[in-house]
């Protein structure tokens, strides 16, 4: 098994409509889509929301990476199907899968198209203290590093006979320990090392910082924000008036 899907959250410099948008607009996009996904528990509304993401993914030229992030959810999807079908219904299980897909896609699009440096700047412009903005962008930047480390850990464990796929749910959960423990330990160690490296470079000694370049909300960012707000108002309206909506929206599987 490959943990390559974690790379689906790694920023790649490209020239596209989505890449050129202001990070704040993209953060709003992720939030709006997450809220929209949480508003519904029916298949069709969630399916339409999911569908509305596709043009944006194509505009961002990130289709392949996005597919990888979706594929990486297979284990979780299986888990959702089994539990929800057993305890509630298959329709509910499908709706929950769509909900997860929307939320993961929204954040995958965000991570794939936002440069970590721009992210820090946008957070600072939102009046967040520099230390917090920097920590956040640093955490964001370490996602691909952790993905590489996870792959190395998997390789090392497989070299001594470790098998990822085991029968039974309990065994599968137990089986994650040889991967998760080294990953957590090395992440904590790295965090300490980074903190020491930053302190040795006098991080935070001056409060009045200047920046090499600044970011600006342009016309297309305003248009995109307007679209997101209209979209949000629209889905909230549908949710509030759901009972008076056409019957087909409430469609569900017979099981």
């Amino acid at each position: 098994m490959s943990l390559e899907f974690l790379n689906a959250f790694k920023f790649m410099k490209k020239k596209s409509f989505l890449h050129n948008l202001d990070p704040r607009a993209k953060l709003l996009f992720s939030i709006v889509y997450t809220i929209s996904a949480l508003l519904f528990t029916q298949i069709l509304p969630l399916f339409f929301i999911f569908l509305s993401l596709i043009p944006l993914i194509l505009l961002g030229k990130i289709f392949r990476q996005w597919v990888k992030s979706i594929r990486g959810l297979s284990f979780l999807v299986l888990f959702i199907i089994i539990l929800n079908t057993l305890f509630i219904s298959l329709s509910f299980a499908l709706a929950m899968i769509l909900r997860i897909y929307i939320m993961v896609s929204a954040f995958s699009i965000f991570f794939l198209t936002v440069d970590p440096n721009d992210l820090a700047l946008s957070l600072i412009s939102m009046k967040l203290p520099y230390e917090f903005a920097f920590s956040f962008s640093l955490a964001f930047r370490f996602v691909p590093t952790i993905a590489t480390e996870a792959q190395n850990i998997l390789d090392a464990q497989q070299s001594r006979g470790y098998e990822m796929q085991k029968k039974g749910l309990i065994n599968q959960i137990k089986n994650l320990f040889p991967l998760l423990i080294p990953l957590i330990i090395s992440s904590i160690k790295r965090a300490f090392n980074v903190a020491e490296a930053l302190e040795s470079r006098a991080f935070g000694s001056r409060k009045d910082r200047t920046y090499y370049y600044t970011i600006k909300y342009s016309f297309k960012d305003f248009v995109f924000t307007l679209y997101l707000l209209v979209f949000l108002v629209f889905v909230i309206f549908i949710r509030v008036q759901f009972n008076s909506m056409p019957d087909f929206l409430m469609w569900s599987l017979p099981v």
Partner: peptide, 21 residues
């Protein structure tokens, strides 16, 4: 499979903390 091959070929990686848990 890797599981079969790991019985014949043992790789000891650079960073020991990648496998200790």
């Amino acid at each position: 499979s890797i599981a079969t091959l790991s019985k014949i070929v043992g790789i000891i990686f650079q960073n020991p903390f990648h496998q200790l848990f």
